[in-house]
Design a protein around this nucleic acid. Structure first.
Lengths: 197, 197, 197, 197
DNA sequence: AATGAATGAGAATTCATTCAT
DNA sequence: TATGAATGAATTCTCATTCAT
């Protein structure tokens, strides 16, 4: 028996459970899923889940990681083309990027990210690990904007706007994508202007 | 017996309970408060709470309203001076407004607003009433930016950025207030430029 | 102030409350009414009910009495004509009486009588008083059948059949009234035949 | 693992709980039993009961079924001998049957049947399922009388009389069994006379 | 590893009753 | 008498977690 392979198997099964859990969270919300549901959605028994995760929190942390990876991947994929050195083109590119993601990525799903994050606020250890994961992944997403703007704060602000809009949309507020795109561009341009100074 | 006075009293007591509940939510998070705790924080018995609120959800809705009023009041108070007609001055004013509120208002508390909103996502009737309350109060906050920019979407985007930053800060991300202020101003200016067109 | 009148008033108000309570029991069932509902259906406050009745049980006993009086009155009214000495005519008369009451008196309401009686089975003191009231009123109803049959047991059996049918009908079993009437007559005749012996 | 056997086990345990519940209902009355009591009478914890029954109502429905089966079985057993074709003998047989059951079967227990039925009157879904169960089992009991009398209504009336007497007895009314038996016979005979026509 | 029965610590909610005004 | 706020005991139901097999 190749232990290495076995370990891999177990890891894969953990991942599978975390993914299924994330699906469930998207469907029913963090506070409404039960270990029972997680188990049956994986065609496993309740007890078996505990062979893979110490407890529910550990499972949620895993699901959160899966979600963040998904988000990060989306930002990465959309921006496969190399960044242009022309500022105007960059602004156009990123404005497209944001408005497209805002448009295509299910806002409810993205909103879960913050739902999980906020619910954990009261549990020191949960908060700690989730925040770390959050920062790590958002750090990657932000790094390119950081370079573009020469400023971490600007990058944060841009991303904050995006996340805020995601939440608004998730709770039913509607706005025109074209306007969003144009304004994103305007904002990016105004942020890059500094660079010249 | 003066019925009018009595009714008022009852309303006031309801409000008191809602306020205490909000405090508790701020301390422990929405999902961690129990009716028992609410009651004892009000020096009442559990049963008494139900003389004021049909159920826990109704209580949360009230607490949410209290929170939103609080937020709105803060935005109103800070901007007691009449809006200047000079765009540059307006930008300065609002940038100060946002960065000051971001700085002074406890982010955790403001974050609760979204915690409550998101947790309700799965309960149709809760979602409906909370969203209405949310839109109503945010509508008031946004109205002045709407006028400044001549655009609802821009106002939303500015507020979204603010809310996003609130959340980031609540989960422990730190950034320089000065930078935030400057960038807010830059952004406001870039948004107002359109008006000339 | 005429104390006598006052006392009478109080009695009348007690009766009124008991009647309203009976209405409520008919609507919602014994176990589903609350003192709150009783109070508001009387346009009184909860506390006031306790000025008239020591507790909920006392109120139920009163409502039970009202119900039994109502039932008794119906049996009395329907049989205003004097009993014929001809047996055949008597059988006809009583068969009509039973089938008509079965037909016209709301079975659900009559069923409440047994609902109250049975629910009390477990509370010694309740059981005792209700049973006494029950026997007293049923005694009056039965007395005329007792005379007709020269047998208490036969009277009981006839009434038992009636009550059984009332319950069946209350739970949704349907049967032809004509058949019921004919069979009642047959049975009464077979019961009276003995008298000749 | 033999799933077939396991499922059977679970069914048996459900039945055991329902039987224990029925015992408790007989002791204390439908409205006075708690899930806590049910659990401890089964040497189980409260939570475990909910692994077998979705809620209290589902448990009561099961207990009701157990009771009805019991009643039906008694009627079946007592009448092991084949029905005679002589009407006189049949009347004798059934009169004996009824009076014996009335005499031997604990009336309080039989009365529970109607207690449960009546208490459910206010809960549409409960009422529906209980009534169905009731009709199904009573249908079997009545079928033999239906044949004897050539009339469904007569069968109902006979059974109604029996049930009425059960209730009377349960609330403490006493009567001679001999008289009951004789009158039952008389009645049955008068009901069968029709058949000749 | 997988199972699923058992657990028990809560949590929300209900409601008869009391009592000060 | 009337009121209605306060109570607190009781009850149903939930669910993460454990553990023997």
């Amino acid at each position: 028996m190749n232990v290495g392979v076995k370990v891999l198997d177990k890891q894969e099964r953990k991942k599978y459970i975390a993914e299924k859990t994330l699906e469930l969270i998207n469907e029913k919300g963090l506070t409404n899923i039960t270990m029972e549901e997680v188990a049956s959605s994986c065609n496993l028994s309740k007890g078996s889940i505990y062979n893979y995760f110490k407890n529910k929190n550990a499972l949620i942390v895993s699901a959160f990681s899966v979600l963040l990876e998904k988000v990060q991947k989306i930002f990465e994929e959309k921006e496969s083309k190399p960044t242009q050195d022309c500022v105007e083109a960059s602004a156009e590119l990123y404005a497209n990027l944001y408005s497209e993601i805002l448009n295509t990525f299910p806002s409810k799903e993205l909103m879960r990210l913050f739902e999980i994050l906020m619910n954990s606020t009261h549990d020191q250890s949960m908060m700690q690990i989730l925040t770390l994961t959050f920062k790590a992944n958002y750090g990657k997403i932000l790094s390119r904007f950081e370079k573009l703007f020469n400023s971490k704060t600007k990058a944060f602000m841009l991303q904050a706007m995006f996340d805020g809009l995601v939440i608004y949309r998730a709770v039913g507020i509607e706005f025109s994508n074209d306007e969003i795109k144009n304004n994103f561009k305007k904002m990016i341009l105004s942020f890059t202007e500094d660079n010249k100074n």
